[in-house]
């Protein structure tokens, strides 16, 4: 009975969740069998579609493939790519791969943290900028590498990063 109650709550939430989201999700579900083995691939597609894993989307996924939400979260939290909050407008990711680290990339990350007053993995309060790190992006020949809004580029320095952040601020004011 308890289980039935949970489901009816879910149904209400599902109705409340925007029709648009359901539509976008069903397009993803169509690509897969309703199978637990596809869980990781489906989660990746959902994140590609929304930029993160919205809570409602995981409710719907749970019903769709008949896998309890705790298991879905078990997989989603295991892999570092998954985000559970809406991404910031601008995303700075500093590479801490060995070649980048040897060439001083941790100083770039320190400077970003200091300047924005947040730690790696966090977003500024206004939702404008987030900073994060990655362990190697495979472009080691151009170390230190920084990824700004999905664009990978090389030969960064703390000064260059300061200027990039100032540019974001100019853009938003």
């Amino acid at each position: 009975m308890k289980h039935a109650h949970r489901n009816s709550c879910l149904d209400r939430e599902v109705k409340n969740c925007s029709e648009e989201m359901a539509k976008r999700l069903s397009a993803i579900f169509l690509k897969y069998r309703k199978d637990k083995d596809d869980l990781l691939s489906i989660l990746q597609d959902i994140q590609d579609e929304f930029g993160y894993l919205p809570e409602e989307a995981l409710h719907l996924l749970s019903k769709e493939i008949r896998v309890p939400e705790n298991e879905i979260y078990g997989v989603a939290t295991f892999y570092a790519i998954f985000r559970f909050e809406k991404p910031a407008k601008h995303r700075i990711t500093v590479c801490l791969g060995t070649a980048c680290y040897v060439n001083g990339s941790s100083k770039i990350l320190d400077e970003a943290e200091r300047k924005l007053g947040i730690k790696a993995g966090q977003t500024t309060e206004d939702g404008e900028v987030s900073i994060d790190h990655v362990f190697c992006n495979g472009c080691c020949g151009h170390a230190p590498v920084v990824i700004v809004d999905n664009v990978v580029s090389g030969d960064w320095s703390p000064t260059k990063l300061n200027e990039a952040i100032d540019k974001f601020k100019e853009g938003s004011s």
Partner: peptide, 11 residues
Amino acid sequence: DEGNPGTFVNR
């Protein structure tokens, strides 16, 4: 799944 930091030969 070339995961070693500092390695990009497979890429």
